[in-house]
Amino acid sequence: MSVIDEKHLLESLQQSDKKSFSIVFSKYYKDLVHFAFTFTKNSETAEEIVQDVFVKFWENRHFIHISVSLKSYLLKSTQNKCLDWLKHQKIREHYKEIAPYITLLSENNTDQYILLSELQANLDKALNSLPDEVAEAFRLSRFADLKYNEIAEKQNVSVRTVEVRISKALQLLREALKDNLWFFLFML
């Protein structure tokens, strides 16, 4: 969806066109649930929150002004709701001590956030640019759900080396995806 398409979409949505609403919904719902899940760690709550976001989005459609992009607007709305939700969670015993940091560590830069679907569209390309053993360690850890000692055994290296490889993968991926970010922003 280009920037222009998105503008048209928003305009007709503001004129109460439910078709446009359904297009926006199908485009962003999944990614937003994945995003909300990073706060809630519970899929039902994540879905509830994102559905609330869309209901509000529809109800307030006439007053919505989008400055960056629709994506970043929806991410921001979702994040605000998630942070509220976090604050209302039962405070665990040790929570008080780290409470000042929870919001800080939970917040995302919604203007530059990479969505799961965007990552998936580019991940193979990005991973291909990494050294094989680094990409493999990353895949095993993030997609095959293996523990570091299991990866170490599989790759026949020390746990420490696995940790280094995964750090390396993250660093290289961030660089690779940073280049792509501009591409993303144009596409959205």
Binding site: F25, H34, Q51, N108, L116
Partner: peptide, 28 residues
């Protein structure tokens, strides 16, 4: 935030979650 972003979306508990968009849209 960049590292968190990458780790969050590559967390398999998250990325493998089944989401029924049609059903969600009906509810909304």
């Amino acid at each position: 935030q960049q590292i968190k972003n990458l780790l969050d979306i590559t967390d398999t508990r998250n990325s493998k979650m089944k989401i029924d968009v049609d059903n969600a849209f009906d509810q909304v």
